[in-house]
Simulated assay, not measured.
Amino acid sequence: MVDPSHMRAALALARRGLGNTWPNPSVGCVIVQYGQVVGRGVTQPGGRPHAETQALAMAGEAARGADAYVTLEPCNHTGQTPPCTEALVAAGVARVVIAGNDPDPRVDGAGIARLRAAGIEVVTGVLTAQADEMQAGFLCRVQHGRPLVTLKLATTLDGKIATRSGESQWITGASARAAAHALRGQHDAVLVGVGTVAADNPSLTCRIVGFRSTPVVRVVVDSHLRTRLTARLIATATTDPTWIIHRGGVPADRQEAFSTAGVRMLSVAGGERGVDLAAGLQALGAAGLTRVLVEGGAQIAAGLLRDGLVDRIAWFHAPGIMGGDGWPAAQAFGVTDLSAMPRFTRTSIRAVGDDMLTEFSRAA
């Protein structure tokens, strides 16, 4: 009999790794013998070792004849580590319970087939919806070639992000800012436009001690390399990874200066208003990123919304109204009919101090 509580435990383990395991998915694994958990594992930072080998190592001989609950189909190919299917076979597990299939062409059913060929019972489809939600970033990269995009907004009740003079610190309170740092910690990267860098000179780090073991990748969309070399993001690029997405044809000496500072440069095609954002996201996906949190500014938000590239929204509302003089969360992006307006489905709402956090997913 399959016990869904063990899969829920494996999913909880996997959620701990979000933001730390790219380019690999964060997977959880629980080994159960006679109803007792004898091994637990989660994908380690950088994507290896994998969850199954971690759990099997903890279980030791107790894994023989046991059940393995895994949030994603075990890999069946040799990369920097041997296949997890072979580790499960060698350990002598009797049954593998899987939440979701892995659409990676190197796996995609081959892991299940290998386990069954070895005489191991395989049960699939246990808490699949929950697993797909947790693995949405990895699935997006495999299926669409780009990371999952979450647009984070911190605004007044009427959707303003700054006063007419540009003052924005702080619209929301300390609790909301702490929650925003937690969001950073659950994503592979944080992305902003060059205008946000010029106005705020941000660090874009996750400043919750012990929240994650690897630094967040900071990504700047800067079509013509206008970012100052003295900006915090550039000055700290050797310790906290910083990438710049830019158009081709920018001066070679500027590219060299950023590269010398430790910045990774990603050249993509130009669009109507600078960088082609779809191409930029494809470049991030090719580099292995699975989950990107977009934090600013209004031009980037408008471009992503216009091009249908926002998958989720995390919207912090402060209990204040600024009026028409304030800067909007998104610049105009050509919506003239209601039918053309991007629509989202609310998935959660909760109080964060004096503010409210509402989360949305793109409507089907």
Rank of each mutant, 00 (worst) to 15 (best):
D3Q: 14
D3E: 15
R8Q: 13
A12M: 05
A12R: 12
N20H: 07
W22V: 04
C29E: 09
I31K: 11
Y34L: 08
G35H: 04
V38I: 12
G39R: 01
R40E: 11
G41W: 01
H50T: 04
Q54P: 00
L56D: 00
L56A: 04
A62P: 00
G65H: 13
D67V: 15
C75F: 15
H77F: 15
Q80W: 13
C84N: 15
E86A: 15
L88C: 07
V89S: 12
A94Y: 09
A99R: 04
D102V: 09
D102I: 09
V107G: 02
G109T: 14
A110E: 12
G111P: 10
L115A: 06
L115I: 08
A117D: 13
A118T: 09
G119T: 00
G119F: 02
V126D: 13
T128M: 00
A131H: 03
Q135N: 14
Q135G: 04
F138Q: 03
F138M: 09
R141T: 04
P147A: 03
L148K: 08
L148R: 09
T155Y: 08
D158Q: 11
G159L: 08
K160M: 14
A162D: 00
T163S: 15
S165H: 08
S168G: 05
T172S: 14
G173L: 04
G173R: 05
A178N: 02
A178M: 08
H181P: 02
H181V: 01
G185A: 07
V190R: 02
V194G: 01
V197E: 10
V197I: 12
N201D: 15
S203W: 11
F211E: 06
F211C: 02
R212F: 04
S213R: 14
P215C: 01
V217Y: 08
V217C: 11
R218C: 13
V219I: 14
V219Q: 04
H224C: 07
H224M: 07
A237R: 02
T239F: 10
D240G: 01
T242V: 06
T242C: 15
I245H: 08
R247H: 10
G249W: 08
P251S: 05
P251E: 12
F258T: 01
L266Q: 06
A269L: 03
G270I: 06
G271I: 10
E272G: 00
E272T: 13
A279W: 07
A283D: 05
G288M: 05
V294A: 06
E295S: 09
G297D: 08
A301S: 13
G303H: 06
L304E: 05
L304A: 13
D307V: 11
L309S: 12
H317A: 10
A330V: 10
A330M: 11
G334T: 11
G334D: 10
V335P: 01
L338H: 01
L338K: 02
L338S: 08
P342K: 01
R343W: 03
R343P: 02
T345G: 11
T345I: 07
T347R: 06
S348P: 03
R350W: 02
D355I: 06
F360L: 01
R362H: 13
